[in-house]
Deep mutational scan, measured.
Amino acid sequence: GLPEGWEMRFTVDGIPYFVDHNRRTTTYIDPRTG
């Protein structure tokens, strides 16, 4: 799974992105792969 505090969501286009609730940021880069 994802690191603690992270969540995976999808855009309206079906593109996955990642929400970091710890820092309240979003990124398209998987936190597991950097």
Rank of each mutant, 00 (worst) to 15 (best):
T11D: 15
G34I: 14
E7V: 12
G1Y: 10
P31I: 02
R24W: 11
W6E: 00
T11H: 04
G14L: 06
D30N: 00
H21P: 05
T25A: 09
P16G: 05
E7K: 06
D30I: 01
D30G: 01
V12F: 14
L2H: 03
P3E: 03
E7L: 07
E7A: 08
N22K: 11
F10N: 03
E7M: 08
P3T: 03
Y17L: 08
D20G: 01
D30E: 03
D30V: 00
E4F: 13
G34R: 08
L2G: 03
H21T: 11
Y28S: 08
G14K: 07
Y28D: 07
G14D: 06
I15K: 10
D30S: 00
G14Y: 03
N22V: 15
N22I: 15
D20Y: 08
R23P: 02
Y28Q: 07
R9K: 11
W6K: 00
I15V: 12
R23V: 07
G14R: 08
R24P: 06
H21R: 10
N22A: 12
T33K: 09
V12I: 14
P3A: 04
E4R: 13
G34M: 14
I29Q: 12
P31Y: 03
V12A: 14
I29F: 10
G34K: 09
R32V: 05
G34D: 14
P3I: 04
E4Y: 12
V19H: 06
P31A: 01
V12H: 14
G1H: 11
D13K: 13
E7T: 12
R23G: 14
V12W: 14
T27L: 04
F18A: 01
Y28A: 07
T33P: 11
P16R: 12
T33I: 13
L2M: 09
T11R: 08
T25E: 14
Y28W: 15
R32W: 07
E4M: 11
T26R: 11
E7D: 05
V19E: 05
F10M: 10
G14A: 05
H21Q: 09
T27S: 10
E7I: 09
Y28N: 08
P16Q: 09
Y28T: 09
Y28V: 07
T26S: 12
G1T: 12
R32N: 04
P31Q: 03
L2K: 03
W6Y: 06
T25S: 09
N22M: 12
M8S: 01
G1D: 15
P31N: 02
P31M: 02
T25M: 14
E4H: 13
P31R: 01
R24H: 15
D30K: 01
G14V: 00
Y17P: 00
W6F: 07
G14H: 08
E7S: 12
F10Y: 12
Y28G: 05
